[in-house]
């Protein structure tokens, strides 16, 4: 698999993630879109790592995965706390303050 193809897929995934964050209003789906963005970055990192023959890219991909886990834990905790208070996780209904 050539680097160009990997980067094409990676940029396509990143675009899907960005659009997901900007267009969806469900907080959990937005978080899923962020995960897609991070995965696009990981794909680019690992493709570059293979291309350059240096393992550094794989190490950062490992760190990104762990950071994604930490973010998911905190993000879902916030979702849970908001849901308890208001029975909804839509960002639209967060309009007590303008978005």
């Amino acid at each position: 698999m050539s680097l160009v193809w990997m980067l094409t897929l990676s940029t396509a995934l990143f675009t899907v993630g960005v659009l997901g964050v900007l267009l969806r209003r469900n907080a959990i789906v937005i978080l899923m879109a962020v995960e897609i963005m991070l995965n696009a970055a990981n794909l680019a990192l690992i493709a570059f790592s293979r291309h350059l023959g240096s393992a550094d890219g794989q190490i950062l991909a490992f760190f990104v995965m762990t950071v994604a886990a930490a973010e998911a834990a905190v993000g879902l905790a916030i979702v849970l706390a908001i849901f308890r208070l208001r029975k909804s996780v839509n960002v639209d209904s967060l309009n007590r303050m303008k978005w």
Partner: peptide, 9 residues
């Protein structure tokens, strides 16, 4: 909580 959510996202 809204501030937290917004800042997080």
């Amino acid at each position: 909580l809204e501030a937290s959510m917004k800042y997080f996202l």
